[in-house]
Each structure stands twice: as structure tokens, then as C-alpha cells.
């Protein structure tokens, strides 16, 4: 037979926190789906130029990054001249970009291959010579959609 327990008397019941994990998990999934992991770490120093007419790069999986700038402190073995970084390698010749694009393109699903966008992240002080070389290499690889990554200019 059921018995009534008379414990606690008139004490206020504690608010149940059983749903708290659910709420937090919901938040967690929201953040997991709306954000993305940090990009490849840059081995070169980059302070981006400023511009006002910016376009957002929407589809992350279509974007490939090329970093151009002076090697940072941890990568001084590559010298102090402006260098090109693809994935996690610093390359010697701008011509290597062409083959890199070809391999990157091959790793994409066929329907997306034509939509590839190359994002150029170059340092303010880089000379245009090296960037032109990269652009020529991209043209040779037929990767024509590019995006010069820039910061939003504050005023104007």
C-alpha cells in the first residue's frame, strides 16, 4: 500500500534543472551549425587591406585560400621576403599554384568544380609582382573567380 511521505514539510520544491542540458545542447547545436572551424593557420604575417565594396564569401566548401606575405616569427627559415602559402606549405615558385589548383579541383565534387572561388589573402605591403604571378598561374589553371580578402573600412 502506498504511503504518504511527510518529509520536508512545507519547504519550497527545487526547480527542476533536468531540462537545462537540453537547452544547452540546443544552443550547442545551433552554434555548431552556424559557425565553422577556424581556417588553416597562416604561416605568413598578414594585415589585410581595407575596402568598402565587399562581397561575402558564402559557401565555405567552394573556397580555397592562398596566403601571401612575409613568413611570421615561427617560420623564419623561409626568409623575410614575401612568400606564398598553400594549405600548410610555403611554396617556392608561383607556378606551383597551377598544379595545386588542379589537385584541389579534383578533390571537389564534380558539380562544384566550376564554382570554385580562390580567396587571396595578401598582406598590405606585398608587392604586386608576386600577386600578378599568382594571378597568371590561376589563369593558367582556369580558376578565374577570385576574391581579394579585405577588411571593412570604418567610414565612407
Amino acid at each position: 500500500m502506498a504511503t504518504f511521505r511527510k518529509s520536508g514539510g512545507r519547504k519550497l520544491k527545487a526547480i527542476s534543472t533536468a531540462s537545462l542540458p537540453d537547452i544547452v545542447f540546443m544552443l550547442l547545436f545551433f552554434f555548431m551549425s552556424t559557425t565553422h572551424m577556424k581556417d588553416k593557420t597562416s604561416m605568413v604575417q598578414i594585415s589585410l587591406p581595407e575596402a568598402s565594396q565587399l562581397v561575402k564569401l558564402e559557401k565555405k566548401n567552394l573556397v580555397r585560400h592562398i596566403f601571401i606575405g612575409e613568413p611570421n616569427k615561427e617560420n623564419r627559415q623561409y626568409g623575410t621576403d614575401s612568400r606564398i602559402q598553400l594549405n600548410d606549405d610555403i611554396i617556392d615558385k608561383p607556378e606551383e599554384v597551377t598544379t595545386w589548383i588542379a589537385t584541389e579541383r579534383a578533390s571537389m565534387p564534380e558539380s562544384d568544380q566550376g564554382k570554385m572561388v580562390v580567396s587571396l589573402k595578401a598582406d598590405n605591403k606585398t608587392k604586386m609582382g608576386i600577386i600578378s604571378d599568382v594571378k597568371q598561374a590561376l589563369r593558367r589553371a582556369n580558376a578565374l573567380k577570385i576574391n581579394y580578402t579585405a577588411k571593412k573600412r570604418a567610414n565612407q
Binding site: 577556424k38 565587399l54 562581397v55 576574391n147 581579394y148 571593412k152
Partner: peptide, 14 residues
């Protein structure tokens, strides 16, 4: 570990 902001830049076609 994640970033909300997507990259922005000047889009051009070569």
C-alpha cells in the same frame, strides 16, 4: 574555436 564571420572581399573574375 569557431568563427562566426565569413570572409569578405572584393570579388573579381580574371
Amino acid at each position: 574555436t569557431t568563427t562566426m564571420a565569413t570572409d569578405e572581399g572584393l570579388s573579381r573574375v580574371l
